[in-house]
């Protein structure tokens, strides 16, 4: 059933399908001109945004009502969308990993780091993805695309902005200049541990996101 839902969601995105190949190109250019460091996370985030499309098209054509007239459980609709999103996460990873060496060849600011750092960046991407997912999916399932756009999209952006700003702010306080460096030093000594931790946390957040989504979608009136 989940496979059928994924197929259905993918077909519903017919218009957007063509835009998918643009993502890697965009990331490549970004990595080339700016920094290769963010290639993997960017790919992942773009793919996450792509997995929001079913919500957008659903509302436009009132497809959510189609789903409810088909012999499908509401829970399965949610599961299908999460599964599609995970598939896209995987694609994003692969895309990022494939692009990174290419970018490194031509980039203006190169980046040479060991394999463990690769893994850490990937783990960080997973965590990032999970956090965004947790913010977006339950909200979109509850409110739909139009209303959910604000709470599910701008809010996490705002959240990250605040976090980043907060961290920068704290770093700028006297005595904290080495904060970021300290953190990186600790991290480099315990890379696998940190990576594992981030992935585990990410997985946990995804499970939470799924549970909340199922609950709110089951109760929703159309």
């Amino acid at each position: 059933m989940i496979r059928k839902m994924i197929a259905l969601d993918w077909r519903a995105m017919k218009v957007y399908q063509i835009r998918f190949p643009i993502l890697p190109v965009f990331v490549f250019v970004f990595g080339w001109l700016y920094t290769p460091l963010l290639v993997i996370p960017l790919c992942v985030i773009f793919c996450l945004s792509f997995s929001i499309n079913p919500f957008a098209v659903e509302e436009k054509g009132e497809l959510n009502k189609l789903y409810l007239t088909l012999p499908v459980k509401r829970k399965e609709v949610v599961a299908g969308r999460f599964a599609l999103s995970l598939i896209l996460l995987f694609c994003g990873m692969v895309m990022g990993i494939a692009i990174l060496p290419l970018v490194n060849l031509v980039a203006l600011s190169k980046w040479y780091l060991s394999l463990e750092w690769y893994l850490t960046i990937m783990a960080l991407s997973v965590l990032l993805y999970a956090v965004f997912n947790l913010f977006m999916f339950p909200v979109l399932f509850r409110l739909g695309y139009q209303k959910g756009k604000f709470w599910g999209f701008y809010l996490p952006i705002g959240f990250f902005g605040i976090m980043f700003g907060g961290f920068s702010g704290i770093s700028m306080l006297p005595g904290n200049e080495r904060l970021a460096l300290n953190f990186l030093e600790y991290a480099s000594k315990n890379l696998l541990f940190i990576s594992g931790g981030m992935v585990a946390l990410g997985a946990g957040l995804l499970v939470l996101s799924y549970a909340i989504s199922v609950k709110v979608y089951s109760k929703r009136d159309f």
Partner: peptide, 20 residues
């Protein structure tokens, strides 16, 4: 009917057929 606006009848069949 609730169908994606870019679908044609063939797409529609492909979309709903697996469910029935």
């Amino acid at each position: 009917p609730y169908f994606q606006e870019d679908w044609n009848p063939i797409d529609i069949e492909r979309a709903v057929k697996p469910f029935y």
